[in-house]
Design a binder for these strands. Structure first.
Lengths: 129, 129
DNA sequence: CTTGAGCTTCCAGTGGCTGGAAGCCTTATC
DNA sequence: GATAAGGCTTCCAGCCACTGGAAGCTCAAG
């Protein structure tokens, strides 16, 4: 199967699929004409990667998860550890964004948003919030 | 004032300050020895930038905010518009992270995390969540 | 005079793609 | 058989906002 169809079936752009080959996440075969030739197992891997990326896992996490997926002797504790660590990162990001949101929304509420130059947002940024 | 002291007083790393000069966010003077020579107003600007960045504004937003800050004829509505748009982006990011968190935490809860290979997290990633 | 800290510039790398150019391959149409 | 369109290939550059490191200059202390 050529890259175009694989792109449609996996939901990943062709550029991304080529990139994943570059960094050895997938290793499609090659046809005589030089085109990449994907097996069903490649598509399955790519879809796996797409879902893991959609959950925010880093590429290196994805590599780990994929190798665990293919390792019949894995222990689910290994997978769970990776996932838990990622969950913590997500929680940290959410907390950081919420804190930004808090400060920013206060400033926005305090600002009249009219034709006059006086602005609490700029004051907050210039004086320390 | 040299970059080291400015770094301490503004809370920004020297590398970042040099970068901000590169992209014309600040324009410190130069001493005869070639060293950057910062005025109080430069430090003020850098601290402003640090706070805006801490609120998650992009560099281009920061450039806009800084120019509004220095423009006496600004209308606070302009500032508020920039801030509101950024707030929306923050809200979108929070929503996306929460959705990831939701899915991921369900998978984690379902996983025993023991020595056996059976793992709902990997199943979820491979079959579609 | 030497040592060490602080400053300079420049280049490369981070993550995860994405855009674009130049050129080969395939398929359909004339 | 020529040609045009579309899909494929590689390679290089760029995105964002820095950050690390090398090579070399300047300055203050001992």
């Amino acid at each position: 199967m050529n890259i175009g169809e694989v792109s449609e079936r996996s939901g990943l752009p062709p550029k991304t699929i080529r990139y994943y080959e570059d960094i050895n996440l997938v290793r499609p075969l090659r046809s005589d004409n030089g085109y990449r030739s994907f097996r069903e197992s490649d598509i399955h891997k790519l879809a796996f990667l797409g879902r893991a990326r959609a959950l925010g896992f880093s590429i290196e996490d994805c590599r780990t998860l994929l190798s665990l997926y293919e390792d019949e002797t894995r222990e689910s504790a290994q997978v769970k550890a990776v996932a838990k660590e990622h969950l913590t990162e997500i929680d940290n990001k959410i907390a950081q964004l919420k804190s930004m949101r808090e400060t920013l929304s206060h400033l926005i509420e305090a600002c009249q948003g009219d034709h006059r130059p006086d602005c609490p947002i700029l004051k907050g940024l210039s004086r320390g919030i």
